[in-house]
Amino acid sequence: MQSYLGTIVAALAAAAIALFAVEVAHRVIRRVGRRSLLLTELTDHAHRSIQVAATVVAVQFAVRFSTGYAVGDQWRQVLLHLLVLGVIASVAWLVASLLVVAEDTALARFRVDVPDNRHARRVRTQVVMLRRLTIAVIVVLAVGVMLMTFPAVRGIGAGVLTSAGVVGVVAALAAQSLLGNVFAGLQLAFSDAVRLDDVVVVEGEWGRIEELTLSYVVVQIWDDRRLILPTSYFTSKPFQNWTRTEAAVLGTAEFDVDWAIPVQAMREELRRLAEGTELWDGRVCVLQVTDATGGTVKVRALVSAADAGSLWDLRCLVREHLVAWIRDHRPTAMPRMRTEIGDVESNLPWQWVRPRRPVRRRTDADVPDDARVFGGSDDGDARSEAFVGPDEPADARR
């Protein structure tokens, strides 16, 4: 009984000393590290794990060295084994907490609440994926080490290693889909194909990457629905990423109008509209006739915006304004079907067309910038080189 009481007193004293030392260190670090992000994160996120690890280690040493150890003391052997398991679990928790602190400190250097946050979102995606992977590895290793402390488990180790080949093949076949998603998640994180907060179009839905894990990806659709896809989807099927290089994008608004439409007047109206709204980023504002078949003329307005949300509102604004402009100022340009009934020989007076004076055609230098997508401005020239390619050398044309 005296041995029991001595062990209990020693364990309680060791736990109290460990808790007191950790608390003092915690307060000192908190006061000293007010301006240090690393020390602040350490005191906020690793305090509990350090308390538990220090207490368990102190109790284990107190029980082991408080009194002499006899072979017949089965209770002491069981208690020490439990304490060893506690030490392994608490140390694993401590290592995981320290890794989380280090990752949070690294992530704090990359802000995502700024306009140009592509690099920050890529780093955040990679760090989040590595955090989940490292925590999973730490848990697996801790469980493995805890199991190896049991003699029965060590005894069957040879048999397990002998059948490891067969078990590995069966496990690989059973977890083929899961492992495929895991490797796909790592590939997405480090290939920079998709990142957190990227604006994408998948399965005909437009949204942003809200969550990216090792097994699935959550896409927040523009109407607040959630589309959940396996990570292997993004490595096996095509999808649109609107913010892979930058957030600025182009968008179109198309109109079917009559041949009587004054294209230049409509182009000038589009320019006035774009310059009068904050949704336009000032890069591209072009109006072109892209088709003229079937009795109507297809006019396409191409505008640019700083991000996908602004572009959506800008496209809707362009449609509403130009539709109202055609209705109020150019009603003859509204789409209509023509039917003519007359003499085959064109002898009726209304079938005669008075010849017009020849109109001077504009040269390429006279064409306004609003009528050219590939040229006419610095942005258009850059787009022309990107899609057409550099000019051929003189020797190649000969």
Rank of each mutant, 00 (worst) to 15 (best):
D366H: 07
G251V: 00
E392F: 11
V284N: 02
L311E: 09
S3T: 15
V257S: 04
T332Q: 15
A396F: 14
A253K: 02
D224C: 10
R271D: 11
T290V: 15
A120Y: 05
D366L: 05
Q2D: 15
S36T: 05
A305D: 07
G159N: 10
V297F: 08
A305I: 01
K298V: 13
Y216E: 12
V353L: 11
V145A: 01
K298L: 13
R64F: 09
V127Q: 00
H47I: 07
V127K: 02
A46Y: 00
N347Y: 12
Q240I: 15
F239R: 01
A184I: 02
V139I: 13
E340Y: 14
A92Y: 01
T67Y: 09
A164R: 07
T105R: 04
L19I: 10
D307Y: 09
K237M: 12
W222V: 15
L311D: 02
A136W: 06
A292K: 14
L98G: 09
V217K: 06
G185H: 03
D281M: 01
V170D: 01
T339W: 08
R35W: 10
V194S: 05
R372W: 05
T40S: 14
A58W: 01
N117L: 00
F183W: 14
M266N: 03
Q264A: 12
V323F: 03
V112M: 13
T149R: 02
L5Y: 14
V114W: 04
G375Q: 09
A120K: 03
D113T: 04
